[in-house]
């Protein structure tokens, strides 16, 4: 990467383009093309590198190895989640992505949340998704899993949004309105104000779960109660909706395509 050749703006623009292109290649578009699929992954990786370089925020690779690893896991498996043809694979990839996110959260010092994400998401929500998939997914690939709605436009939109977000995140370091960056406890600072902030950040790490619990059931007790009620309502609501009884007639007029055609294609694959 020659900085003279690639100005930051150009770098960012090419990263955005590559992201869009890669996502578009990866997303299901009806026809399956292995090489396009690999090209998409490659472009995505290059784009990710472009974003990383555009940010120029990574220090030595060794220091942030953990962070880099877990975030890579999260991002790659997140990408795989949305591009997998089979929803079951998507769910599995999502689980891996959750693991990556949990790692990021751990790096950020939110130990409880890291664990909770794994427990709640991977352990409960995701399993629920899988159950539903088992119940509802027809055998084999459905036609709607093989095509996307407006893939190119969506990919471009997402990429531009990502570019904008990266730009504004990059501004954080240079913008005049940016608050004085707080140092970690390890990076000692001279000023008393920052040291107090460092102590506050330190406090996030020390006795983390107990203090988070105290915070939750102290300052945010009302919200916790509200969340509890919300959970109860969701429980009752879902039971009520399910127990209303299912219509026994399948409305085939809503089909986008004759089911026989799908079966034919599946039959061909078998």
């Amino acid at each position: 990467m020659n900085p003279a050749l690639f100005s930051p703006g150009l770098l960012l623009a090419s990263a955005v383009t590559l992201t869009a292109l890669g996502l578009w290649l990866l997303l299901p578009r009806g026809s399956e093309n292995r090489s396009a699929w690999w090209l998409g992954w490659l472009l995505g990786a290059v784009a990710l590198a472009g974003f990383v370089c555009a940010g120029k925020r990574l220090g030595g690779i060794g220091e942030e190895a953990v962070f880099l690893t877990v975030s890579l896991v999260a991002i790659v498996s997140g990408t795989a989640t949305i591009v997998s043809r089979s929803p079951v694979y998507s769910a599995i990839w999502f689980a891996l992505s959750l693991a990556g996110v949990a790692g990021v959260l751990l790096v950020l010092g939110a130990q409880f949340l890291g664990v909770a994400t794994i427990v709640v998401y991977a352990g409960a929500i995701l399993v629920m998704f899988l159950f539903v998939l088992m119940l509802a997914q027809p055998s084999g690939l459905a036609s709607y899993d093989r095509v996307s709605s407006e893939p190119l436009l969506s990919a471009v939109t997402g990429a531009v949004l990502l570019g904008l977000l990266t730009l504004s995140i990059g501004r954080l370091s240079v913008g005049p309105a940016t608050p004085e960056p707080l140092a970690l406890a390890s990076a000692a600072s001279d000023s008393p104000a920052t040291s107090s902030h460092a102590a506050a950040i330190d406090s996030l790490v020390k006795n983390h779960v107990a203090r988070l619990g105290g915070e939750l059931f102290g300052r945010h007790l009302l919200a916790v109660e509200a969340a509890g009620v919300l959970l109860l309502v969701a429980l009752i609501g879902s039971i009520a909706i399910v127990s209303r009884g299912e219509p026994d007639v399948v409305d085939h007029s809503l089909d986008l395509q004759p089911l026989t055609a799908t079966k034919q294609s599946q039959g061909g694959r078998r």
Binding site: S148, E150, P151, L165
Partner: peptide, 30 residues
Amino acid sequence: MTSLPLLQNALSVGAILFVLGLVGILTRRN
């Protein structure tokens, strides 16, 4: 890693995940 780069990196990861989810919700029909 100092505080600001960590913040920026974490925000970048969050942004990427967010955009991936957005693209997914806009395109996937399942």
